[in-house]
Amino acid sequence: MQRLGYLGRRLGYVLITLWGVSLLLFVMLQLLPGGPAEAMLGITATQQQVDALNQELGLDRPVVAQYVDYMGRLIRGDLGDSLVFGRPVVDVIGDALPATLKLAVYVVALSTLSTVTLATLAASFRGRAIDHVIRALPLIGVGMPGFWIGAMLLFLFALTFPFFPAGGIEEGFAGALRSLFLPALTLAISVSAILIRSLRRGLIDVLESDHVLTARAKGLRGVRLVVRHVLPNAAIPTVTLMGLVFVSLLGGALIVESVFAIPGVGQLLVNGFKRHDMPLVMGIALLSAAAILLVNLLIDVVYSLLDPRVSLR
C-alpha cells in the first residue's frame, strides 16, 4: 500500500515535470529567431507567401492559443504532424528510434564489458602500474571530444584497415553488429570513462568489507567471489548511472549519429531545430524527458526491491 502511494506520488511528479518541460521548450522555441515558414520557403519568399504559410500552419495565432491547442492534443496523446516531413511526429520518431535503440544497447554492452573488465583489474591491482594506467584512461576518454574519436576510429578502422563500414547501418543482426561497432565504441569510450571510476571505487570498498573477508576465509576465490559477492554489491551505483546513460542515448547521440550517418533520433532532432520543426523537436524532447523520468522511477523501485534497507517514501 505504501509502495502504491509512493508510485502515485512519483507519477504525479513525472507529469508535472513533463508539463514544465513542455512549457519551457515551447517558450524557448518561440524565442528562437526565424520561423518555420521562412525556413521552408527560403530567402526568395515574399512576405505574402510567408504570411500565407504561417496561416496555413496555424502559426499566425496568439502564442497562448497555440500552446493551449498543443497541450490539448498532447493530452489526447497526439504529438501533431512534423512540419518538414508532413507526417505524424510519432511515426517520424518511430522510424528513427530503432537505429538509436540499437546503438544505445550496443553502447551499454560495450561499456559494461569494458567497465567491468577494467574496473576489476584496477581494483584488483590497486596502487600498481596497471591501476594507474586504468585510472588515467577515463581522463583521456573525457578529454577527447566524441566527434574526434569517431573521426579517428573511422580513419583507422574504415579506411586504413577497412574492418568496418564508414557509417550507416547494415541490414540484419550481423550487419548491425558490424556497422554499429565504431559508433558504439566512440560513445562507450566516453561513457566508460565515468563508469570505470565509479565501479572501481565500489569494488575496492566491497573487497575490503567484512563479508568478503569472511568469504575469502572460507576459501572462496577468483571469479566466483567477484561474481557472487563483490560485483552485486559494488555495481548498484554504476548500474544506476548506466541506466541513465542508456535513457539519455535514446534522445539521440547528436554528433556520433551525424559522424557515422546513423539515421537515428539525434539526427532528427538536429534537423528539426535547423528547420524550425517545432512539433518534431517538442515530440523528441518530451519523449526523452518522459523516458528519463520513468526510468529514474523504475530504478528507485528496483532499488527498494533489491535492497530491503531502501524504503519508498
Partner: peptide, 11 residues
C-alpha cells in the same frame, strides 16, 4: 562484428 563480411547484403 568483423566476421560478417559474407553476411546478409550490407553496404
Amino acid at each position: 562484428g568483423g566476421g560478417s563480411d559474407d553476411g546478409d547484403g550490407g553496404r
